[in-house]
């Protein structure tokens, strides 16, 4: 019960700290986007092929783009205060609805990629640490270095070449078979087939990082005095690795994984484009190209929420993993 109270206090503190952070992010992003040349009206006019000065002025005043910058910012903030993310002129629908359509796709993709990278990375890293300096370690080290240095989109393209074009095992793009009327488990299996390649190409880079980090952390923990104590107690090798070494080695890995979740969204832009995966990353990319700033601001705001929530979760996870963290100071 003391633990839960401690956790609750931490959460409350995080929530209170989050408010100024989010407001700061919104304002900063808003001004940064103002630096980009052109606006939504320019893009729409360009796409239409021709537009008179009057139509463009009309478009601008309709979207509120003719107002002074400060005024626009205040409008946006007041929208936010009413829990509205604004309206996308380009897609012709509220931004919240637009993001709501794309968010699950990205979350599933990122979740799958992160889960895969963490599980396999920690397993491979443990193997490398166990066989450090010997053949399995060398082979895995070279492999992880390779995936660490090769860009995700290239891996994606190669995976498509191998598994979709040559072998024909897995679909090359999209998130489900178009026009299929599958339900229940069959629909789930169908979606799972589509997520394999994008998740794999998104995760390989992170997998390489986690494998190398796990290896280093485990080798470090292995030489600690308490591991020797455990051996002097007659602990079996498997139990020694799982309970005494890995548990301690996981602490730096959770820190890094938490930091990666924000970065993964950036990687998702590329991977979603390669695999035409209908997610947030691609929406963000399209929004930039269309100068659809309300969509972009919405996405940025959302990702800042995601990062804050993930950080809080990682904090809690670490407090659970390591009792020394989060002690009252």
């Amino acid at each position: 019960m003391i633990v839960s109270r401690r956790l609750f206090q931490r959460l409350r503190r995080t929530a209170i700290q989050a408010v100024p952070t989010v407001v700061g992010i919104v304002i900063l992003n808003f001004f940064l986007l103002q630096f980009a040349p052109g606006d939504a009206a320019d893009v729409m006019a360009a796409e239409a092929g021709s537009a008179t000065v009057e139509t463009m002025a009309d478009l601008r005043s309709r979207f509120g783009l003719d107002l002074p910058v400060i005024h626009q910012l205040l409008n946006y903030l007041s929208n936010l205060a009413h829990f509205s993310l604004g309206y996308s002129p380009r897609y012709g629908m509220p931004v919240a609805e637009l993001i709501g359509q794309r968010l699950p796709g990205t979350l599933i993709l990122m979740g799958a990629a992160l889960l895969f990278a963490l599980t396999i990375g920690v397993i491979l890293g443990s193997l490398m640490a166990q066989f450090s300096g010997r053949l399995p370690d060398r082979v895995l080290s070279v492999g992880s270095l390779l995936f660490y240095s090769v860009p995700g989109f290239w891996i994606g393209l190669m995976l498509i070449l191998l598994f979709s074009v040559k072998l024909g095992w897995l679909p090359s793009g999209g998130d489900s078979t178009i026009g299929s009327s599958l339900t229940g488990f069959a629909a789930l299996a169908d979606r799972a087939r589509y997520i394999v390649l994008p998740a794999l190409s998104l995760s390989l880079y992170y997998l390489a990082i986690y494998a190398r980090l796990t290896r280093a952390a485990m080798l470090e923990v292995k030489s600690q005095d308490y591991v020797r104590t455990a051996r002097a107690k007659g602990v079996s090798p498997l139990r020694l690795v799982l309970r005494h070494i890995l548990r301690n080695a996981l602490i730096p890995i959770t820190t890094l994984a938490g930091m990666h979740i924000g970065g993964m969204l950036g990687g998702a832009v590329v991977v979603e484009t390669v695999f035409s995966w209908p997610g947030l990353g691609r929406l963000a990319f399209e929004a930039v190209m269309a100068r659809d700033f309300s969509v972009l601001l919405g996405i940025l705001l959302l990702s800042s929420f995601v990062v804050i929530i993930v950080n809080a979760t990682v904090d809690l996870l670490q407090a659970w993993l390591d009792p020394r963290i989060g002690e009252s100071r």
Binding site: Y226, T229, A232
Partner: peptide, 21 residues
């Protein structure tokens, strides 16, 4: 089977010889 049961051992550094987690 002998370690910890027939022969026990105490090490020098009490600060680091116990598993912190």
């Amino acid at each position: 089977r002998i370690r910890g049961r027939d022969i026990g051992m105490i090490f020098q550094e009490p600060m680091t010889s116990l598993n912190p987690v």
